[in-house]
Computed example of a mutant assay.
Amino acid sequence: MAGTFTTRTINITTGSTETLHDLTNACSAFLREVAHGRNGLLNVFTPHATSGLAVIETGAGSDNDLLAALRDFLPADDRWQGRHGSPDRSSAHMLPALVPPHATLPVVDGELELGTSQSVVLVSTDRDNPERHVRLSFLS
């Protein structure tokens, strides 16, 4: 039986602050529509130079901890050689080196196979770009 591939882009408004946006429900809804109980892989990708994707626990403070750690690792100051827009934006261009712009996740019986406390999140530290795109692709 030949495999199938289905893909869709969703749009996310992240606003003008550093943020984590939970994509877990959007991923699950996409799989309910396209996976039909099959096993496969869900690839999540964001085509932006200043955002990434993480699989972490949310709601218990870990989301704020991740943003605080990124502020420590990538301070928004003038140390960066790259010049991209506003002076504090250059550090956001380093984000994908620490939080990659992609994640590939197992799908079992049509459902996202995450741990009990895991969520899929879009990470954005770029306050100059409030609109993001995320591509969801299912391969079975």
Score class of each variant (00 low, 15 high):
Asn11Val: 13
Asn11Leu: 09
Ile12Pro: 09
Thr13Pro: 02
Thr13Ile: 06
Thr14His: 09
Thr14Cys: 12
Gly15His: 03
Ser16Phe: 13
Ser16Trp: 07
Thr17Arg: 15
Thr17Pro: 00
Thr19Asp: 09
Leu20Trp: 01
Leu20Met: 10
His21Glu: 11
His21Arg: 13
His21Met: 05
Asp22Glu: 08
Thr24Gln: 06
Thr24Tyr: 04
Asn25Leu: 14
Asn25Asp: 14
Ala26Thr: 07
Ala26Glu: 15
Ala26Arg: 15
Ala26Tyr: 03
Ser28Gln: 15
Ser28Tyr: 00
Ala29Lys: 13
Ala29Asn: 14
Phe30Val: 02
Phe30Gly: 00
Phe30Ile: 07
Leu31Cys: 01
Leu31Gln: 01
Leu31Ser: 01
Arg32Gln: 14
Glu33Thr: 13
Glu33Trp: 00
Glu33Lys: 14
Ala35Asn: 03
Ala35Ser: 10
Gly37Glu: 09
Asn39Gln: 06
Asn39Thr: 07
Gly40Leu: 02
Gly40Pro: 06
Leu41Asn: 01
Asn43Pro: 03
Asn43Leu: 14
Phe45Gln: 04
Phe45Gly: 03
Phe45Thr: 06
Pro47Trp: 04
Pro47Glu: 06
His48Ile: 09
Thr50Ala: 13
Ser51Val: 01
Ser51Trp: 00
Leu53Gly: 04
Leu53Gln: 01
Val55Glu: 03
Ile56Asp: 03
Ile56Ala: 10
Glu57Met: 05
Thr58Leu: 14
Thr58Trp: 07
Gly59Val: 09
Ala60Phe: 09
Gly61Asn: 11
Asn64Met: 13
Asn64Ser: 14
Leu66Cys: 09
Leu66Arg: 12
Leu66Pro: 08
Leu67Gln: 07
Leu67Cys: 11
Ala69Asn: 06
Ala69Val: 15
Leu70Arg: 04
Leu70Ile: 10
Asp72Gln: 14
Asp72Cys: 12
Asp72Thr: 15
Leu74Tyr: 00
Leu74Ala: 10
Ala76Tyr: 00
Asp77Thr: 02
Asp77Ile: 04
Asp78Lys: 08
Arg79Pro: 12
Arg79Ala: 09
Arg79Val: 08
Arg79Cys: 10
Trp80Met: 06
Trp80Asp: 05
Trp80Pro: 04
Gln81Ile: 09
Gln81Met: 10
Gly85Thr: 02
Pro87Ala: 13
Pro87Arg: 10
Pro87Val: 06
Arg89Phe: 00
Ser91Tyr: 00
Pro96Asp: 12
Pro96Cys: 11
Pro96Val: 11
Val99Thr: 05
His102Trp: 11
His102Arg: 13
Ala103Ile: 00
Ala103Pro: 08
Thr104His: 03
Thr104Leu: 07
Leu105Ala: 12
Pro106Gln: 05
Val108Leu: 15
Asp109Pro: 00
Gly110Trp: 01
Leu112Cys: 10
Glu113Arg: 11
Leu114Val: 04
Leu114Glu: 02
Leu114Cys: 06
Gly115Cys: 11
Gly115Ser: 10
Ser117Ala: 14
Gln118Lys: 02
Gln118Pro: 12
Gln118Thr: 05
Ser119His: 15
Ser119Glu: 06
Ser119Thr: 13
Val120Asn: 03
Leu122Glu: 03
Leu122Thr: 06
Val123Ala: 02
Val123His: 07
Val123Leu: 09
Ser124Pro: 06
Thr125Asp: 09
Thr125Met: 15
